[in-house]
Amino acid sequence: MKTATDLTRRFALAAHELRQQLPPATLQAAIHRHLDRAEAAPPRRPWAAWLGWAGLSTAAATLAIALVVHSMLPADAQQPATTADADGFVRLVSADEWQRAQGDAARTWVVNTELPQARLAALGLPYDPARAGERVPAQLLMHSSGDVLAVRFNR
């Protein structure tokens, strides 16, 4: 039992030392005033944070839907259609520009050249990827402005 009384005495001494460590009364009053002001502050609005997350999630969902719809479009809607004329030229410009070029035939000319086979894929034409580095003889129908209006491949 000696240890129980010894422990009680030590607790009493510790409590006395702790009471002596308290701040002065003026400082305690200032601390309490500050705590009272903090309690009187307007409460946080958790719904405001929720609205921010809702806007972000709406934007992400909209982007995801747009990507899905874009991927579901037919391939011909995503890439411009290439059409070949009776003379074998594949148009590279819109129908309006083609009509203007046909009306102004004095300002267009045919240029002989060679293009890499990989260029066929860019024009939407079939090609062999194993021969992508090989060159293909072609003729370009060019406007005097430097625009390439059409291409014809000579195989």
Results as ranks from 00 to 15, higher is better:
69 V>G: 09
110 V>L: 14
55 G>Q: 07
3 T>I: 02
49 A>P: 07
50 W>Q: 14
145 S>F: 05
111 V>A: 12
98 W>V: 02
37 R>Q: 13
83 T>C: 04
139 Q>E: 10
56 L>F: 14
68 V>Y: 00
30 A>Y: 05
61 A>I: 07
110 V>M: 11
78 Q>C: 02
139 Q>F: 06
111 V>Q: 12
61 A>F: 09
105 A>E: 14
43 P>C: 08
123 L>H: 09
49 A>H: 09
98 W>R: 04
54 A>D: 10
92 L>N: 02
134 E>R: 11
97 E>Q: 13
106 A>P: 05
32 H>G: 13
11 F>D: 07
152 R>L: 03
100 R>S: 11
46 P>R: 14
102 Q>C: 00
111 V>C: 07
95 A>C: 03
85 D>M: 09
63 L>N: 11
152 R>P: 02
31 I>G: 10
80 P>S: 10
45 R>E: 15
34 H>D: 15
81 A>G: 15
4 A>Y: 03
153 F>V: 06
112 N>W: 01
24 P>R: 08
46 P>G: 14
42 P>S: 06
89 F>P: 00
55 G>H: 01
65 I>E: 12
7 L>C: 10
76 D>A: 05
86 A>W: 10
19 R>I: 04
134 E>K: 05
113 T>Q: 00
130 A>S: 15
46 P>E: 11
40 A>C: 14
50 W>H: 14
33 R>D: 11
103 G>F: 01
34 H>T: 14
119 R>D: 05
59 A>R: 00
129 P>T: 01
120 L>N: 01
124 G>E: 05
18 L>S: 01
118 A>L: 11
10 R>V: 05
144 S>T: 10
19 R>D: 15
146 G>C: 06
20 Q>T: 07
134 E>P: 04
2 K>T: 07
95 A>K: 12
119 R>S: 04
132 A>T: 06
2 K>G: 07
69 V>P: 04
16 H>N: 05
147 D>A: 14
65 I>P: 04
95 A>Y: 07
147 D>M: 03
89 F>L: 00
22 L>S: 13
